[in-house]
Design a protein around this nucleic acid. Structure first.
Lengths: 247, 247
DNA sequence: CGGAGGGTTGAGATTCATCAACGCGTGTGG
DNA sequence: CCACACGCGTTGATGAATCTCAACCCTCCG
């Protein structure tokens, strides 16, 4: 099986990073490519995990459900190149999360036993997994403190800051990669509050037009920076980094 | 260096689980044991991580700070046998968390470079780390949905359920392992709300007397069970598991 | 044209944080 | 030995913030 060509060298999924040809080949040999319509449940909370999912096209989300009211808490939202269920495989026990497509998606599935076997055979693969899982964990920690101690506008601001840095710090425009209600849930608020918060952001120089976000200048979002993002912001400690809360 | 004797075979820290004698010896050789008073900061959010901390005696907590108001969000609370900063070592970049003692504590510190080297040399050690990190991640996911979609009483109930299962399911009494304000913050509420919530729990058959929690019967907390805990509850699917939300 | 889904806006209800005061146990210093 | 301060936990009153419910607009699509 060949990896689809829409992953060029730079956007190669982290799961396969630096793997030797034969090692990669071995993994892909037993993997299955599959297409799903939007809204399809791939794993149910409580199921025992059976494979890792690598998003080729489309988008997935992982979330948890509260039994009583049926409310959902989004844990992650995945885009092409992202993987999920790697951590769950090594947790032992049933899956704590549900996995669902939120667009029509093409997904590569690597079976559990292949993964577990390969981890012991290729140290690079083990390191990749460790890196991926720790990055998820870091995001989770940020999510936790967001819910606890940040206001809605701070959460949205931080989310926008990350997307802005993704798009390139000299790019004054970026797009929301998911539906607004999805992002709202991910940020721990209702679609209504999210919508109202977007309006508040105008006064900070951030215009919202449908899916497009336009920033007045590159520092409009500096106010939402923290030690985590400062480390990856090319403008950090430059003269203009004035609104940064760290200073 | 010898591991202190208060870890018997069963309570051996997961970090060292199933390691061969020489492997363990190698790790401990370069580790440092240290005592700290309560309230001491061991790692500051933004610092680059330098070692793994293994709690021998006392207690630590890890948390994140919000810059503007100085509010804190507790990520984890550690007891003897627990470790922290393992995940951070592999995340790359500065530490997203602050680590602090919350009791006078004895802590074993394993330097970063020893850990990273040992991971590639002993696969069992790598697997241990992967298990530990994924378990943290799982807890983080549960924390996220707690903040989002659970009421204070549900959060406290779930926390109590875990402690109850820890103490043994046939034990109708257990103790709070930390200060109430610490637990409150960990559960994402103020000490006041926590206190009020404790009173509410009386009507569910859970008495609180200082640090001691007394349950009327083994099923008082079943109401707060979910798919994650059901898997480890010895009473699950037994006839008495009546209040379980899963049914 | 009509319906469905996503997004927005408004009004009201609820819940939790905040602020303040108090009780209690402990340790300290006069 | 007592007075006092301090930290922790509790209780009460208040207010602000966000969720809920409802209506509406818009676009897309059959």
């Amino acid at each position: 099986m060949r990896l689809p060509c829409n992953f060029n060298e730079q956007k190669k999924p982290q799961l396969f990073e630096k793997l030797s040809e034969p090692s990669l080949e071995k993994l892909l040999q037993h993997s299955v490519m599959q297409d799903y319509e939007s809204g399809r449940i791939l794993v149910q909370q409580g199921d025992s995990p059976e494979c890792i999912f690598l998003v080729i096209e489309g988008a997935l989300r992982t979330f948890r459900i509260e039994a009583e009211e049926g409310h959902e808490a989004t844990i992650r939202m995945l885009q092409p190149g992202d993987t999920c269920m790697e951590a769950v495989l090594f947790m032992g026990g049933p899956s704590p999360i549900t996995v669902q497509t939120i667009q029509t998606s093409k997904v590569l599935q690597v079976p559990e036993r292949i993964v577990k076997k390969h981890v012991t055979e290729d140290p690079q693969f083990a390191v990749n997994l460790l890196r991926i899982v720790t990055r998820h964990y870091k995001n989770a920690m940020i999510q936790i403190d967001s819910m606890n101690i940040k206001s809605p506008i701070q959460r949205v601001g931080y989310y926008f800051l990350l997307k802005h840095l993704d798009a390139g710090h000299d790019n004054m425009e970026f797009e929301l990669p998911f539906q607004k209600q999805m992002i709202a849930n991910y940020l721990g608020m209702t679609p209504e509050t999210f919508s109202r918060t977007l309006k508040q952001m105008k006064s900070l120089g951030v215009e919202v037009d449908g899916e497009k976000i336009k920033m007045r200048d590159a520092f409009s979002l500096c106010h939402f920076c923290d030690s985590d993002t400062a480390a990856i912001c090319p403008l950090h400690n430059k003269e203009h980094c004035k609104d940064c809360l760290l200073h």
